[in-house]
């Protein structure tokens, strides 16, 4: 399998404070890769660095072309959808407008309304609230909206930042079932950042463990999941 994303020696800093110290990782086409690690390890920073929301250096190759010097808006145009920390909802706009915004980089005719119907079929609860202000949605609904908005791009790669954050366990299950469904049926590659390691490892094919800005460990998700010592020392469950 060829790599959708190839990252070498990725570094990033906030001001003078260096957060990422040369990360190397790959995302195979159509696979789910997860980045695990404690609070402050640099997971969110990695996602932000990948799509140019902060200054970064190193090699970032997406589908064989370098995106290390590209602006966020241009990276999105290549089919990279970022579901950000905090879900990035346009709270003052309606649910449907939020979804339409996801397709902003596609040309106007291009089956956008059809895609909205598909998303609504996928998330019936969003359909019920289509003309409601998105800020009035619950956390779980906003997470679904964020995923729906990302899908509207018809992405080839999705970057997901803690989709389980702040959600009730039942809703978390629902969201992860949806992600599994997307992987099965749409062939979207995913980079999943999670604190909930057991959930993430269940969905993922490949896992990387980040510790204070460098990769401490990597391997197939199943192996890491089954390795008692890794679980005890890194994942704490």
């Amino acid at each position: 399998m060829s790599a959708t994303l190839k990252v070498r020696n990725l570094e990033a800093s906030y001001g003078a404070f260096k957060v990422l110290h040369g990360l190397d990782f790959d995302i195979a086409e159509g696979s789910v890769t997860t980045l695990l690690g404690a609070n402050g390890a640099g997971k969110t920073t990695t996602l932000r660095a990948l799509c140019g929301m902060i200054r970064r250096s190193g090699t970032i190759e997406y589908e064989g072309r370098s995106i290390a010097n590209m602006k966020t808006e241009d990276i999105v145009r290549l089919g990279v959808a970022h579901v950000p920390e905090g879900r990035g909802t346009f709270t003052s706009l309606t649910v449907e407008e939020n979804l339409r915004l996801g397709a902003m980089t596609r040309s106007a005719g291009d089956g956008i309304s059809g895609d909205i119907d598909r998303i609504f079929a996928f998330f019936p609860r969003l359909k019920e609230r289509a003309s409601q202000q998105a800020g009035t949605l619950s956390g779980g609904e906003q997470q679904m909206l964020a995923i729906g908005r990302a899908l509207m791009l018809r992405p080839k790669l999705m970057l997901l930042d803690e989709p389980s954050f702040g959600l009730a366990p039942l809703i978390v299950k629902e969201v992860f079932a949806i992600l599994a469904d997307i992987r099965e049926n749409m062939g979207v590659s995913m980079l999943l950042v999670e604190q909930n390691a057991s959930l993430a490892l269940e969905l993922a094919d490949q896992a990387y463990l980040i510790e204070t800005g460098s990769i401490a460990l990597s391997g197939p998700a199943a192996e890491i999941r089954d390795d008692e010592s890794v679980r005890a020392s890194y994942l704490g469950y």
């Binding site: 966020t72 990035g88 407008e97």
Partner: peptide, 14 residues
């Protein structure tokens, strides 16, 4: 409207 309401998210949808 999106750019005014939430510039960061607006960039993320391109």
């Amino acid at each position: 409207r999106a750019a005014a309401a939430n510039p960061e998210s607006a960039k993320l949808v391109g």
